[in-house]
């Protein structure tokens, strides 16, 4: 087995060690999903005007958020990596025959995949059998579902590349608090985690369009609901790839610079 796969395995083993955390996660996801949908139901019932997204689409959007929360939420950071830098265990990291950017990237993917896999299925089992209007709708077409899967996975790659920049920033700031808070607030909002992007005012949608964040949440989820059509979805996956290449290249370059000036904290 090669190193990234075996890191993934190690992650799963660690995740399984904490069963209560996974169970609590599932309940939290269901709870927040229900609350959000209640708010939207009230909003859609008492607001007669036509909205850019139907209630059904919004319900799917909310449940997808909750199911794949661990995959795409930006502010889920791996404390272990921060501690490697600020606590000085980076020394061991650099004694291994691997390049740091790819392996940390793999670690981030492993962390997200393992934590999502423990939550996604149980949440899915529940939300597909809830009573209307809370029930999770099926994808509009097999094509939409296939494209959604692709878009979600490249969204995962993209969110990991964005968060890598936050980890690398810690080499300079020595504390994750600032960079995490900034990116969490801005990124979460413009990704469409709080309000779906189509429900935002026009000028805000323009800003969201210029940033990479909406390609991680808003885009894949609206592909699922069919709000974004097949042709548009294919083009979107192309744009995701361009963002991914740009962010990974920037990260790799910054990481090289950071390692040249690395200081092992704590002797």
């Amino acid at each position: 087995m090669n190193a990234p796969l075996s890191l993934l395995k190690m992650r799963f083993l660690t995740g399984l060690q904490y069963r209560a955390a996974a169970a609590a996660g599932i309940l939290t996801q269901l709870f927040f999903g229900l609350i959000f949908i209640m708010v939207y139901v009230a909003f859609y019932t008492h607001n007669g005007a036509a909205q850019p997204m139907s209630l059904k689409e919004v319900v799917a959007y909310v449940w997808l958020q909750q199911m794949f929360f661990a995959l795409i939420v930006l502010w889920q950071f791996d404390v272990e990596l921060f501690e490697l830098i600020t606590g000085g265990n980076i020394a061991y990291e650099l004694c291994r025959p691997w390049r740091l950017y790819p392996i940390w990237y793999a670690k981030l993917l492993a962390a997200r995949l393992s934590s999502a896999s423990l939550r996604c299925l149980p949440v899915a089992l529940v939300v597909f059998i809830l009573p209307e209007p809370y029930r999770m709708p099926l994808p509009t077409s097999p094509a939409a579902f296939l494209l959604f899967t692709l878009a979600l996975l490249s969204g995962l790659l993209l969110v990991a590349a964005i968060s890598m920049l936050v980890y690398i920033s810690v080499f300079w700031t020595m504390s994750p608090v600032g960079s995490v808070l900034m990116i969490a607030v801005a990124g979460e909002f413009f990704a469409g985690m709080i309000v779906p992007v189509p429900l935002m005012p026009g000028w805000m949608q323009t800003i969201a369009g210029l940033l990479p964040f909406r390609w991680t949440v808003d885009f894949p989820f609206r592909v699922y609901t069919g709000h974004i059509g097949v042709r548009e979805a294919l083009a979107g996956i192309g744009i995701q790839m361009i963002w991914l290449a740009a962010l990974a290249a920037a990260g790799e370059w910054l990481m090289g610079r950071a390692l040249r000036r690395v200081v092992v904290q704590g002797g």
Partner: peptide, 12 residues
Amino acid sequence: STTIKIMCGVLV
């Protein structure tokens, strides 16, 4: 420790 870390490739 600094010398060791330089010899291990950790520090430049």
